[in-house]
């Protein structure tokens, strides 16, 4: 009986195992191979040494990713809290509205910001009526951060919303009964219980923000060059797969470290229902 069920579970799992071996493990091994060889296929550490040139780019990327993530959190947290405490039909509609932009192509959504922020774009055309501007809204760091927040905000809202809507209301009521003020209810009850949601939202915004290249190219106009751009350039323009692969490897390791720090938050007995989607 025991044996049979484990065979059945293996059978059920096999499509996904096959998938991950083919499309996750194998590519990772290839990245590792390219990172440690030169163009002729001989072993070398030159690519790894070449990374030193880009250390400031790495730091810049992590800085931008962190700023975008924190802004997303500040926007998403009150919204998710508010959402979890309203009527069911309103909740359903709002969740759908949050997800609605995700049904459109990420590229088109980002590109649209150019026509909004440009010198003859929507905002500046409006300001011109009052004789202001044109303000330099595009091609700077703020536009890049805006693009990141705009694109990845749903990934922050949804896990937060999930955690908060599952939260036991009676805990909040109990705290209120015991005389806790609204602020201390949030600080002592809601916030600790929503940590798993914050952690998973943090991950899902931070990781794509750090590695993005499309947003920086379109909204940063080449002024802001993040590590994603450098990697993309190594593959697309410089045709240097080896350096590109070793940069990707370092990026992966750095993201893993960041995720490791986050696990400190979720790896506790109170962590339930955090990682979702």
């Amino acid at each position: 009986m025991m044996k049979k069920s484990s065979f059945a579970s293996k059978l059920i799992n096999s499509p996904y195992i096959l998938w991950s071996v083919l499309f996750i493990i194998a590519p990772l091994i290839m990245v590792l191979y390219y990172a440690l060889t030169d163009a002729s296929g001989a072993f070398t550490l030159d690519n790894v040494k070449g990374i030193a040139d880009y250390s400031s780019t790495f730091i810049l990327s992590i800085g931008y990713g962190a700023v975008a993530t924190v802004i997303s959190l500040i926007i998403a947290y009150p919204f998710a809290y508010f959402l979890a405490h309203t009527g069911a039909s309103f909740q359903r509609m709002s969740v759908m509205l949050v997800m609605l932009p995700m049904w459109m192509s990420f590229l088109i959504r980002t590109y649209s910001w150019i026509t909004i922020l440009g010198d003859s774009g929507v905002i500046n055309s409006f300001l011109r009526i009052f004789g202001i501007g044109p303000l330099p809204l595009l091609n700077n760091g703020a536009a890049v951060i805006l693009g990141m927040v705009y694109n990845f905000l749903p990934y922050m809202i949804l896990p937060l919303y999930t955690v908060m809507s599952r939260m036991d209301r009676s805990l909040i009521e109990a705290a209120e009964d015991l005389g806790a003020s609204r602020l201390s209810v949030i600080r002592r009850v809601v916030l600790p219980l929503s940590v798993p949601g914050i952690a998973s939202g943090f991950t899902m915004v931070f990781v794509p923000s750090v590695s993005t290249f499309y947003i920086t190219q379109k909204l940063g106009g080449g002024q802001i060059n993040l590590i994603g751009d450098v990697i993309e350039g190594q593959f697309q323009v410089a045709n240097n797969y080896n350096l590109g692969a070793s940069l990707s490897l370092v990026l992966m390791v750095m993201i893993l470290i960041c995720l490791g720090i986050l696990r400190l938050f979720t790896d506790s007995d109170e962590g339930n229902g955090g990682v979702l989607i």
């Binding site: 880009y54 400031s56 080449g222 060059n225 450098v230 350039g233 323009v237 410089a238």
Partner: peptide
């Protein structure tokens, strides 16, 4: 060199 031209922040 090109990557450096575009890459330096």
């Amino acid at each position: 060199q090109w990557m450096k031209v575009k890459g330096e922040n």
